[in-house]
């Protein structure tokens, strides 16, 4: 399984709970999340490198902002990937997420709450230029924290992230959503 590093912890938890010992996990850098145009070449290279060494390869990415290019690349390579537009959707369940249609929500997963400064605050330059905050987040209303596990410390941190971004806060427990189902089929 070639996976986004941002869901590595969750994959390992599912693997452990479901005894999916036949899967080897290789993670690509989670920071690719911030540069979707680099995801396809990175995944392609990893799949090609794994070819011949495994009976099958699974790509643990959704579309992830690639505009359909990752799915097309996976089809060319003859490998499967996770259904859905992104992890926010498959953690909540693609059907439920699509039904919400909440386009003024900014989502954080457990991983993104832990890595908020490295993945959101600093890459957007808000550490150096906090005055840019409203240019980025002015049209957002709520930070939705999608919790994969129950962890009061993470909830506290997520609430703090919302405050720093000037957004309302909602915690939504998702568990692993469609990710668990996708992995158990392998």
């Amino acid at each position: 399984m070639i996976a986004c590093g941002a869901i590595a912890r969750e994959i390992l938890a599912i693997q452990d709970a479901s005894r999916l010992d036949h899967l080897d996990l290789q993670c690509l850098p989670a920071i690719l999340h911030n540069t979707p145009d680099r995801i396809v070449p990175a995944v392609e290279a990893a799949v090609r490198a794994a070819a011949g060494r495994y009976a099958s390869v699974f790509v643990a990415y959704a579309d992830c902002g690639t505009g359909g290019l990752l799915k097309a690349a996976c089809e060319r390579l003859g490998v499967e990937l996770i259904e859905g537009p992104h992890c926010y959707s498959f953690f909540e369940g693609n059907q439920t997420f699509a039904g919400r249609d909440e386009f003024t929500a900014f989502y954080l997963t457990d991983f993104l709450v832990r890595q908020f400064d490295a993945f959101v605050w600093r890459p957007l330059g808000l550490d150096r230029h906090p005055e840019l905050r409203n240019l980025y987040f002015g049209h957002y209303e709520t930070l939705v924290y999608q919790a994969q596990v129950d962890d009061p410390a993470l909830t506290h941190k997520a609430r703090d992230c919302a405050q720093r971004l000037g957004l309302g806060f909602e915690r939504r427990f998702t568990g692993y959503g469609d990710l668990a189902a996708a992995l158990r089929e392998l």
Binding site: P123, L124, G125, L126, R128, H129, L132, L135
Partner: peptide, 8 residues
């Protein structure tokens, strides 16, 4: 350059 610098 990156997005923050372009915005400034």
């Amino acid at each position: 350059l990156f997005v923050p610098e372009v915005l400034l």
